[in-house]
């Protein structure tokens, strides 16, 4: 199981790690599928944004972190939470607004905060997590720690002034931040090319002298390799890096989005690049595990998530008397 793997992109990871990343991706995929069903049945208040299709960027990056490191996520952030170790039952309960949710039902899908595991939270504001991550890295330095902080954001956030400001500060002060753009081609319903100027996306980081690269975000091994490099660089005190992971959201902006703005041919092509197919293939091709075992892993993930749904759905709701709690610390 320990043999190193080689893929087309040249990235290689340890077999045990690949297996573990694959399992996490499966859990995310089927967590999201469960949420999709719950949302379709009306059990999820508000809009919910799913990350199915983007599992490799969630998992590949976070696999390069230590438990003590930090992440800041965005509105499509369930996968980040799970990859960082969030209890899926509490996460699901939060998304359904239940008392047993990770934030007591106060915050929902877009504000899941899990400080115990260094998760500064999913975030409802485009680019909102970016300065939080820069701040966490500054705090880490202040306490003499080499903790690293990753901020995830989408391609829509590339045009946020905050990104420019934070990249600049991170570069000046050599903060241990890894800027990760999960570029799924659309900011809400707007195609990236319609709103994003410039000859190259990495160029936006290179301006500040930040090592920047664009990678295949559907290949968990390539993502991990890039993250490994960036995280080590940050932990060594060299400063920030910028990774653009090209990926695809299978489900549109939110559950219920008909995705009429997408081109069918493009969708088909991306579907074929499903990160789970890719890692499953790599695992079996390298003889790490059998195809049957991979299928069993998937079945386990399906069962785990499906088994939670009813219990969470029938869980108790928070009491209105708790309303004024935690407004001030």
């Amino acid at each position: 199981m320990n043999k190193a793997l080689k893929n087309a992109g040249g990235a290689s990871v340890d077999g045990r790690l690949l297996l573990s990343m694959h399992r996490t991706m499966l859990r995310i995929r089927h967590f999201e599928e469960t949420i999709r069903r719950l949302a379709a049945s009306g059990a999820v208040p508000g809009l919910v944004h799913l990350c199915a299709g983007q599992e490799a960027t969630n998992v590949g990056i976070i696999a390069a972190l230590e438990d003590r490191d930090f992440i800041a996520s965005h509105h499509r952030g369930h996968g980040h939470c799970i990859a960082k170790g969030a209890p899926v039952e509490g996460l699901m309960a939060e998304i359904l607004g239940k008392a047993s949710g990770m934030c007591g039902g106060r915050s929902g899908s877009m504000h899941v905060i899990d400080m115990e595991r260094g998760n500064l939270g999913t975030n409802g504001i485009v680019g909102g997590g970016i300065p939080l991550a820069a701040g966490a890295a500054l705090a880490a330095r202040a306490r003499g720690s080499d903790d690293v902080c990753v901020c995830f954001f989408g391609d829509g956030a590339l045009n946020q002034g905050l990104l420019h400001e934070c990249m600049n500060m991170a570069a000046i002060w050599k903060l241990a931040v890894v800027f990760v753009c999960e570029n799924n081609g659309y900011g809400e319903f707007t195609a990236i090319d319609d709103v994003t100027a410039g000859p190259s996306l990495p160029g936006r980081g290179e301006v500040f002298g930040i090592p920047s690269e664009m990678i295949d975000g559907m290949d968990v091994q390539a993502v991990y390799a890039a993250a490994r490099k960036a995280v080590d660089y940050a932990r060594a005190g060299h400063g920030p890096s910028f990774i653009i992971c090209n990926t695809w959201r299978f489900g549109g902006h939110h559950v219920g989005d008909k995705q009429e703005y997408k081109d069918d041919e493009e969708t088909r092509a991306w579907r074929l690049r499903d990160p789970l197919l890719r890692s499953a293939k790599a695992l079996s091709a390298a003889g790490i595990v059998s195809e049957e075992a991979i299928a069993q892993m998937e079945q386990d993930a399906i069962s785990e998530m499906a088994a939670l749904a009813d219990g969470v759905r029938n869980g108790s709701e928070p009491a209105a008397q708790t309303l004024l709690e935690h407004v001030y610390g």
Partner: peptide
């Protein structure tokens, strides 16, 4: 300033 970057874009 971020707004400068946004405006240039």
């Amino acid at each position: 300033e971020g707004v400068a970057y946004e405006s240039l874009n």
